[in-house]
């Protein structure tokens, strides 16, 4: 397990978010839905920055740390990929992505 494994999981996260963003459109006049979609797009931006941090980080974490993080990311990605494309699910997607970013913050902290 190394940085590439973590990156692959982050790519999966971002790809799942992209699919959710592409196929979810708020109804006309649904300000709350539009805001949810904007938040989801912002979360995808944060995943891109997390990818940037992982690429720049030195590898100092132990294999166990990395393997644990990869496992957590895989679970979160599975939940994201199973979400149907609705505005309500976009809110769930935002919450799951927040967990992903939390895992990455800990891993990058260990890698730097």
């Amino acid at each position: 397990m190394n940085k590439v494994d973590i990156l692959q999981k982050l790519f999966e996260t971002r790809s799942a978010l992209t699919r959710l963003i592409i196929h979810t459109s708020p109804a006309p006049g649904d300000a709350d839905g539009a805001q949810t979609l904007t938040d989801l797009i912002h979360k995808r931006e944060q995943v891109t920055h997390a990818i940037q941090d992982v690429i720049a980080a030195d590898v100092k974490a132990t294999d166990d740390d990395v393997a644990k993080a990869v496992g957590q990311l895989a679970d979160a990605n599975k939940q994201l990929q199973d979400l149907a494309n609705t505005i309500q699910n976009a809110k769930t997607g935002i919450a799951i992505t927040a967990q992903v970013l939390n895992v990455i913050a800990q891993v990058v902290g260990a890698l730097m």
């Binding site: 992209t18 963003i21 592409i22 459109s25 708020p26 539009a34 805001q35 979609l37 904007t38 797009i41 912002h42 995808r44 931006e45 891109t48």
Partner: peptide, 11 residues
């Protein structure tokens, strides 16, 4: 990447 959704009406 995040700016393409505008084409079909998001924020």
């Amino acid at each position: 990447l995040p700016r393409l959704k505008a084409e079909y009406g998001a924020e």
